[in-house]
Design a protein around this nucleic acid. Sequence first.
DNA 1: GAGTTGTACAAGAGACCGCTTGTGAATGCC
DNA 2: GGCATTCACAAGCGGTCTCTTGTACAACTC
Lengths: 116, 116
Amino acid sequence: MAQRKKSAAPAAPDAVLRALADPNRREILRLVQHTELPAGQIAGCFTLTQQAVSQHIGVLRAAGLLTERREGTRRLYALHHESLEPVRDLLSEFWPDALGRLKKAVETAHPRPPTR
Amino acid sequence: MAQRKKSAAPAAPDAVLRALADPNRREILRLVQHTELPAGQIAGCFTLTQQAVSQHIGVLRAAGLLTERREGTRRLYALHHESLEPVRDLLSEFWPDALGRLKKAVETAHPRPPTR
DNA sequence: GAGTTGTACAAGAGACCGCTTGTGAATGCC
DNA sequence: GGCATTCACAAGCGGTCTCTTGTACAACTC
């Protein structure tokens, strides 16, 4: 199986939306949106246990919202912006006027590899 | 006490995101995106029971994503676009460059009453 | 090798979600 | 009034989510 999807289908936004629907997970994304951070440091920002935060990281990673890089014993996480696209597409679908047009503007300003 | 008890809810991003995270509910939103529809007609588009669809409508309404209008024994629902704004704000927060700037452009082009 | 550190995996409790069946309330029509 | 239609409310069931505690494992340090 070379490709996960045959066309430029809107993917499954379910996982991304569910992942975003939790305030703790959104906070994690805010922490790593500009710099990558090790799991332990992320966990240190919460009153939850390290394991609970690790599970949240797992949810975000499963949704494709985090990239992981191992460095020694640590694992560094960072926001993977492109996985937000299904949400943006969804939004533009329901946003009749403004966002729909602006989406094209975004794509013009930030060309991406053609989705085959 | 603030006066935020109207049918058009303040829309915490959690409720909106959770509501959007279900494919059946997204389908409901697509149905009423351009025209308002009675609950029964919405339910007729699904294999679920009328009650199940009614519950989905309740979730969407609680998230502020639907407006309700009573007409006789029927209740007509339509998409309430503005409740999507928290999602748009969230997205622009995590979208480093393009969407963040374009959001301002949207607000300039489509001014709305100041929130709060 | 032994200990320490950083992290994920596993199992379980309690809450919540989505669905079904059953029922009731409001409106319209005869 | 009596009845049909439209729809929400209520209870219950199985599955899923989120959290906790306990544990395992890999990589560094000595």
